[in-house]
Design a protein around this nucleic acid. Structure first.
Ligand SMILES: [Mn+2]
Ligand SMILES: [Mn+2]
Ligand SMILES: [Zn+2]
Ligand SMILES: [Zn+2]
Lengths: 138, 138
DNA sequence: ATATAATTTATAATGATTCTAAAGTAGTGT
DNA sequence: ACACTACTTTAGAATCATTATAAATTATAT
């Protein structure tokens, strides 16, 4: 139930000091059975409830960005007004429910492997992201 | 060379009055051999040069949004700070050059047809968008 | 314990987008 | 041509997510 020392080690090994704030955010993001998708606003609200001492919004932004840089989070492309992040850092695709604005993982076996038959000189492929927009029937 | 009357008819038939501003924007967007991708800021700058009388930024936003609603433009998902629009309204996918922030069309023959093997009850697929991020070699 | 660099924080700044409400214009009918 | 009305444009304000700033705090090494 208490992965605290694991998080401390994880942070240290990334060159990040294990501060109270980062540990709180680690627990919120990574202490779960399933990965999930979130916006900064989402976790800001969650942290307001969970933690007895307020974590500043700037720190949440800073932390999420460092976690992304270290590869512990991915940012998902959904052309929205806000950024979406994903604790599932494996290569995978998404449904976007346009009625609820919810992101849902597509496992790799749910999508055919994608071959791109065009390539541009001097450029290489960095990532391939599929976004399947879904909506309510009728 | 002068598609003005065509644009006037196109606008009228969509229930949009053919104003000077909308016609200028039509000419800029649709009077070309190839389709293209743009941000509001892009065409705002272009219009500053092209037109002798300034078109207000609010009008550019209004017009681009009505054109999108009428189906003359598509909005592309690139998780960015700005929205990208596309005068190519056919179903197609994109390269995103992360070094230049440029969007490049992938023709449908450049990407295998994508089958989604998962479906959610009560939901139907609205669109499938593939974004291939590319970057400079080395 | 001290020194140093990293981190957090409140707050301001930025930038894209949307809103507002007043002024201007296009289409319609006279 | 004139007047009426609804639509459109416009400048500027407001909003909202995000980033920057710079001072206070904290973690770590010595
Ligand atoms: Mn949008
Ligand atoms: Mn981003
Ligand atoms: Zn995911
Ligand atoms: Zn395109």
């Amino acid at each position: 139930m208490d992965n605290n020392s694991i998080f401390i080690e994880k942070l240290r090994s990334s060159g990040l000091r294990p501060t109270k704030q980062r540990l709180e955010i680690c627990k919120l993001l990574f202490n779960r059975k399933k990965t999930f998708h979130f916006t900064i606003n989402d976790i800001s609200k969650m942290l307001k409830n969970k933690t007895y001492k307020k974590i500043s919004l700037a720190t949440i932004y800073n932390t999420v960005h460092s976690f992304k840089k270290k590869g512990y989070l991915k940012e998902i492309s959904v052309n929205s007004d806000k950024s979406y992040f994903d604790t599932n850092t494996s290569s995978h695709h998404h449904f976007l429910d346009v009625n609820t604005n919810e992101l849902i993982d597509l496992n790799n076996e749910d999508v055919d492997n994608i071959k791109i038959k065009k390539n541009l000189p001097g450029k290489k492929i960095k990532s391939i992201e599929v976004l399947v927009k879904i909506e309510n029937n009728n």
